[in-house]
Amino acid sequence: MRICLITPRPDHPVLAATTALLTPRHQVESIDPESEGDGAPGDPSVPGPLADVYLLKARTPRALALARSFEERGAPVLNPAAATALCQDRTEMAGLARRAGLPFAATRTVASLAGLAGLAGLADGRDLPYPLVVKSRHSRRHDLVTRVDSAARLRGLGAAWAQEPVVVQEFTANSGWDHKLWVIGGQVFAALRRSELAEDGRGPTLPLELGDLPHGWQDLARAVGSVFALEVYGVDVIDAGDGTPLIVDINAFPGIRGQKGAPEALAALALRAAARRA
Rank of each mutant, 00 (worst) to 15 (best):
L181P: 05
M93D: 03
L96T: 14
P129E: 13
K135M: 06
Q169A: 05
W177Q: 10
P103W: 01
V148W: 11
R202M: 14
P165T: 09
K135L: 05
Q163T: 13
W217F: 08
D127K: 09
G176D: 10
G115M: 04
P214V: 06
F104L: 09
R108G: 05
V188N: 01
S150N: 13
A82Q: 14
A160I: 10
Y130S: 09
P131S: 09
L157F: 13
Y130R: 04
L154V: 10
L144G: 00
L197D: 03
G201F: 01
L213C: 05
L208S: 09
L132P: 02
L197A: 00
G156S: 13
W177H: 07
R140T: 10
K135S: 04
A117L: 10
E164C: 07
D178P: 02
C87Y: 12
H138T: 14
L154G: 04
A162C: 11
A117Q: 08
L113V: 03
Y130E: 07
R194T: 02
G95N: 12
A191F: 04
S136L: 09
A114C: 04
A97M: 10
H138R: 14
L102T: 12
A94K: 11
D149E: 15
T109A: 15
A162T: 00
L181Q: 02
G185A: 11
E196Y: 13
F189L: 06
E199Q: 12
G225Y: 03
V224I: 07
P207Q: 10
D178W: 08
V145Y: 07
V133S: 08
A223N: 03
V183Q: 01
A152I: 09
T107R: 14
V224H: 01
R222T: 03
R141C: 00
V167N: 03
R141I: 00
R99H: 13
P103R: 02
G118N: 05
T84N: 09
D200V: 12
R90T: 10
R137E: 12
L78K: 03
Q187T: 15
D200F: 11
L102S: 08
A97T: 13
E196D: 06
L102P: 15
G118F: 06
Q169N: 12
T107A: 07
V148G: 00
K135P: 12
L220E: 05
V148S: 02
D124P: 02
R99P: 11
G211S: 13
D124L: 06
A123G: 06
S112I: 01
